[in-house]
């Protein structure tokens, strides 16, 4: 029975990787097609201007194909009704990508649920489990957020890190299902570790959008349009990206605060002291302080938003380090990697 479940769980993860990889491809295709349409539009524009300058007729351009009839919307930003200007082929790619994303998400959820049933406990006891649950929350956050606004431009950038995590999970972090060690046997695992994993998912979205913001900002200030960054024209403006990233961080930061507090309460139960400067605690503290600095930097007049965003990205670097490095290589009480 348990072996069957274990197999179902593994197969779900592997199929999810395949499906999400395809989804990533279609999201990339979507961006490429939108970008190509955008470039065509950029090329078409001067011509139209020439005609207009000739003053022959004012109705030139009205019978152009949908998607290039609004010179003002070259940026194609959310809010300027981007969807209606996309070529049908791009829209189709995004549709397929979305369906595949939903399927992949369902498969990861299935993997987590079967794993939980297999081990008959909360499925957050080792690095393999942290990784697949983290991937699940990231996907769920993306899917959930997508239902409230158009985030098709973000798909590729969310799926790439999710795939990296799932790939590492099945290769380097794979751990056979087993019971928990005594210090993990507590209802606090469901509170502390679950919220921590969710928080990392939200931080991931914040960091991905933040990195896109920095790229977009550079592109906007240098006035670049085509070339390798042409797909960026489909993305929201730098200002909008910055706000989106900030809102993700605003959700994640209190969650992280809660994670640290819950961890401290649990640490007293399990280890006898609520704070012991164990490497994991040190890094949780560092992460908290770095993100607090990000929020401060953003609220400080005279500080550039770009610099504030860099602080947030450093914070995310610490989050990655706290998971991938501290769990495995640092000597401490948080030795639950299962490796």
């Amino acid at each position: 029975m348990n072996d069957t479940l274990a197999q179902i769980s593994s197969y779900s993860v592997y199929s999810a990787i395949v499906v999400l990889f395809l989804a990533l491809g279609f999201y990339a295709l979507y961006l490429a097609r939108v970008a190509r349409a955008g470039e065509a539009e950029v090329e078409a524009a001067p011509e139209r201007e020439l005609v207009a300058a000739g003053g022959t007729t004012s109705s030139v351009g009205t019978d152009e194909p949908v998607g290039t009839d609004e010179p003002a919307s070259t940026g194609g930003h959310v809010g300027t009704d981007a969807a209606t200007q996309e070529p049908a082929r791009a829209r189709k790619a995004a549709g397929i990508a979305w369906t595949l994303t939903l399927l992949g998400t369902a498969l990861v959820v299935a993997a987590v649920v079967t794993r939980a049933v297999e081990v008959a406990r909360w499925p957050l006891g080792n690095m393999y489990e942290f990784a697949i649950v983290g991937a699940m929350f990231t996907l769920l956050a993306y899917v959930g957020w997508s239902s409230r606004r158009d985030l098709r431009w973000l798909g590729a950038f969310v799926l790439a890190p999710v795939l990296a995590v799932l790939g590492s999970a099945v290769t380097v972090w794979w751990t056979e299902g087993s019971a928990l060690m005594p210090s993990l046997r507590s209802y606090w695992i469901a509170i502390h570790v679950t919220v921590a994993t969710m928080t990392v998912a939200v931080f991931t979205l914040g960091a991905v959008i933040g990195a896109l913001y920095l790229l977009q900002d550079k592109r906007e200030t240098s006035g670049g349009g085509g070339g390798r960054t042409a797909f960026m024209s489909r993305l929201p403006s730098a200002r909008a990206l910055e706000r989106l990233s900030y809102s993700a961080h605003v959700v994640a930061f209190p969650m992280w605060t809660f994670t640290v507090i819950a961890g401290a309460i649990w640490a007293r139960q399990a280890w006898g002291s609520y704070w012991n400067w164990d490497p994991k605690e040190v890094w949780s503290f560092v992460i908290w302080v770095v993100y607090a600095a990000y929020l401060h930097a953003r609220a400080t007049t005279g500080w550039k938003r770009q610099n504030a965003m860099w602080i947030a990205l450093i914070g995310f670097g610490c989050v990655i380090l706290n998971f991938a490095v501290v769990n495995v290589f640092f000597v401490g009480q948080h030795s639950y990697s299962g490796l």
Partner: peptide, 19 residues
């Protein structure tokens, strides 16, 4: 606020050797 920001970043860096 700048000083607070600077001290926060410094605190983060200073905590690292402990790990």
């Amino acid at each position: 606020m700048r000083t607070a920001l600077f001290l926060l970043l410094l605190l983060a860096v200073a905590a690292i050797p402990g790990s």
